[in-house]
Amino acid sequence: MKPPAFDYLRAGSISDVVEGLAQQGGDARVLAGGQSLMAMLNMRLAKPKLLIDIMRIKELRQIERKNDAVVIGAGVRQADLLAWPDLAEALPLVALALPWVGHVQTRSRGTICGSLAHADPSAEMPLALVALGGEVLLRNARRRRRVAAKDFFAGMMLTARADDELIEGISLPVIKGSRVAFREVARRHGDFAIVACAAMKTPNGVRLAVGGVADVPTARDWPRLEGSALDDALNAFAYELGARDDVHATARYRRDLVRMIGRDLIREVLQ
């Protein structure tokens, strides 16, 4: 269980990274915290010819508050964000979700953007990005572009990132005065979610985002719903997510959790 051979590039600047990506294309992989990629390398699921280590690039290590958004660089570790003093005030949903990401020992190295790049549908950060309607900032050697969260995740482990693009960072909106709630069910503490739900009060009603069920984290907006209307909406949503059986849970169980936790969280944020 040793990784295949690859070149290792310790990038000193963003241009090192995007040039490396331009040259090697799909055979290059960006190495940030390594908490997903290195495991895949050890298992030889991934076989890049080039790894580009971006963690020495200072400008990617920033957490910046810009007007109504927080921009989190590709080099920001999960632990860095958790320790950011403004987190609970600016991004209360992220503050709730982030402690569910892995364990202390993986959050200390793992990055926010790395989790997004990996695009595991059960992971918490992709869910938070979708729930908040954030954007992913992509960059190649020629241009930059921003992709909305809902367009970024294309499927299990698939994203809108092109082979030559670096996820430079993400932008998460600061939604003032919003009530949020988050709950996750996993087999054990720190495992990938069987179902993770994030709820947020919106100006017109409520948003519920669900991870771990569909191939991508999925958000749904509703006007203020109550009683059986809420139950019906949640039931329809639960089925639309296309839950499946696996070794840890059945599709039915997942739908049950969407219905029950969804209802609890929506009530909580609408209180």
Binding site: D120, A154, M157
Partner: peptide, 11 residues
């Protein structure tokens, strides 16, 4: 990678 199979295949 059992958890990831179905979705990836459909994609």
């Amino acid at each position: 990678g059992g958890r990831l199979l179905d979705g990836a295949t459909r994609v």
